[in-house]
Amino acid sequence: MIKTTELTKVFGENTVLKNISTTIKPGEVVAVIGPSGSGKSTFLRCLNLLEEPSAGDIEIDGKVITTPKVNKLEVRKNIGMVFQHFHLFPHMTVLDNVTYAPIKVKKFSKEAAEEMGKELLAKVGLSDKVEAYPNRLSGGQKQRVAIARALAMDPEVMLFDEPTSALDPEMVKEVLDVMKDLAQTGMTMVVVTHEMNFAKEVADRILFLDNGVLMEEGEPSTFFAKPKTQRAKDFLDKVL
């Protein structure tokens, strides 16, 4: 369970997140939506401490991770992250991308890691690309490798930062399909996205952020049908 309490992030003069309080339950799929610059990505990046919150608390499974003495690496071991621009390691093969962290961080044997890596790559439909280098892959394939890489650490939560925004339109579906499968396995997921259909279909709950403020949260059916705030109405008018 992830619980944020009055989470605030300030960059210089800019307050990009203002007192965000919400709870993400185990197994829940939460879609974070809102106009660009609304703080969605910053919110997500605070959850694994890639950004350090300026104020407020984040609690994961009852443990407060926003104290100075917290071991960030320990926190991140349980939180997988998928980036908009993939950030695969270009000098490693696809399989090495997936097995690197389990071997280095979790001290898996090479054999065990590779077995698991191949299994994960099969799950995302990339069995034939095991030995390829990332530069040889399409965007959709890269993002599926990135998902496999994050899953290889066996995380309890997966964070997705606009995972399909950098993809050509015809590749969006293959990545969303993998994410849907993942959601069905009961993985806790927080997804920053512009894919409203995905949010509608797959998410259990929507967080709508605007200007750093959590304006609305609720089930997709109610949120998309009857947004409570004018800001959400305006936003949905533009994107739907």
Binding site: G80, M81, A101, V105
Partner: peptide, 14 residues
């Protein structure tokens, strides 16, 4: 690319 650092950090790599 700074993303490389972030990807490694997100995986808990020391």
């Amino acid at each position: 690319d700074k993303g490389q650092t972030e990807a490694a950090e997100a995986l808990g790599v020391p």
